[in-house]
Amino acid sequence: MDVFMKGLSKAKEGVVAAAEKTKQGVAEAAGKTKEGVLYVGSKTKEGVVHGVATVAEKTKEQVTNVGGAVVTGVTAVAQKTVEGAGSIAAATGFVKKDQLGKNEEGAPQEGILEDMPVDPDNEAYEMPSEEGYQDYEPEA
């Protein structure tokens, strides 16, 4: 019985440690998101679009440190934060509304985080759909 109880105690310690790591990862992701939003706020009209992409990228980098179902929630929060940063930029006159959601080359930025393969159960990952990809044929 002692062996059984000791095993359960060790398992509990492992769960607590994993929860603490997840909590730490979420806190880091939130900190990076805040950094990115402050970065966007300090940019001029020309830099705002690039700044919004930076927020998304920093958040995406930190999301990889967070495991399990938390990833889905962090990704949703990050996307809403990026959308909010863009709205703030438009409201303050840093950028025109028609410039939001495009990178410096004018290509749409939507789907940055949505296409990231995420499995809350950590069982399997699927690649994003290939609808947006084109076949590449090298020139002879």
Rank of each mutant, 00 (worst) to 15 (best):
Y39L: 07
E126H: 12
L113S: 11
E13Q: 05
V48N: 00
V71H: 04
G67A: 10
E35H: 06
K58I: 14
Y125G: 11
A124E: 13
D115H: 11
V37P: 00
V26F: 15
V52C: 13
A30E: 00
T22V: 07
E83Y: 03
V26E: 00
A56C: 12
M5P: 00
M5C: 01
N122H: 10
E105R: 13
A89H: 04
H50T: 12
V48S: 01
D98K: 10
G47T: 14
E61M: 06
V26A: 02
E83Q: 08
K43T: 04
A76I: 14
M116C: 08
F94W: 15
V77D: 01
D135T: 07
E130C: 10
G93I: 09
Y133G: 07
P138C: 10
L100N: 03
T44F: 15
V70G: 01
F94K: 03
D115I: 05
V48F: 07
K45G: 03
K6S: 02
V71P: 01
E57I: 11
A27K: 07
D98S: 11
G67E: 02
G67P: 02
G7Y: 06
T64C: 12
K23S: 05
M127Q: 10
E83F: 12
D2S: 02
T54M: 15
A90H: 11
T75C: 10
Q134Y: 05
N103P: 10
A27Y: 13
A30Y: 14
M127Y: 10
M5H: 00
A91Y: 12
N103L: 08
G31M: 15
P128Y: 02
T75A: 14
A11N: 00
S87G: 15
S129K: 05
S9T: 02
A29H: 02
K102N: 15
P128D: 10
V3K: 01
G14W: 04
S42K: 13
K21V: 09
Y133Q: 07
M116E: 14
Q62C: 07
N122A: 04
D2W: 02
V48Q: 00
G14I: 14
G68M: 15
F94Q: 04
V15E: 00
L8Y: 02
V16S: 08
T54E: 02
G106T: 05
Q62N: 07
V40N: 00
A90L: 14
E13H: 02
G84R: 12
K60N: 02
Q79F: 03
G86T: 08
V49A: 09
G36S: 14
G132C: 11
D121A: 07
E28H: 05
Y39W: 09
E104K: 09
Y136L: 10
V40D: 00
M116Y: 06
I112S: 12
P128M: 12
V48W: 15
Y133S: 03
V49M: 15
K43W: 15
A56L: 14
T59L: 04
A30T: 04
E20Q: 08
V77H: 01
A69C: 08
V118F: 07
T75Y: 11
A140Q: 07
A53N: 11
G67D: 01
S9K: 13
G101Q: 12
S42Y: 11
G67C: 12
E61C: 07
Q24L: 08
Q134I: 09
A107C: 05
E13F: 05
T54Q: 07
A19D: 00
Q109H: 10
T72G: 12
A27E: 02
A78C: 07
T64W: 08
K80D: 02
E46Q: 06
S129Y: 04
K43P: 00
L113Q: 12
K43C: 12
T22A: 12
E104P: 07
K58H: 11
E35C: 11
F94I: 06
V16Y: 11
T92R: 04
A78H: 04
P128W: 06
K6Y: 02
E28K: 06
A90T: 11
G14R: 14
I112D: 06
K32I: 13
T59P: 01
N103Q: 09
E28W: 03
T33G: 03
T64H: 12
T22L: 06
E105C: 03
V49W: 15
D98V: 03
A91S: 05
E110G: 07
Q62G: 04
N122R: 15
A91E: 05
G68E: 12
P128H: 04
V118N: 13
K10E: 01
A30N: 00
Q109A: 02
A91K: 04
P128F: 06
P120N: 08
Y136K: 15
D119R: 01
V3I: 03
V52H: 01
A85V: 11
T64R: 08
V95Q: 09
E83I: 12
V48K: 01
D2N: 15
T75E: 03
K58G: 00
V49Q: 10
G47V: 12
A140T: 12
A30S: 04
V63N: 01
G31F: 15
K96T: 14
T72D: 12
Q79A: 07
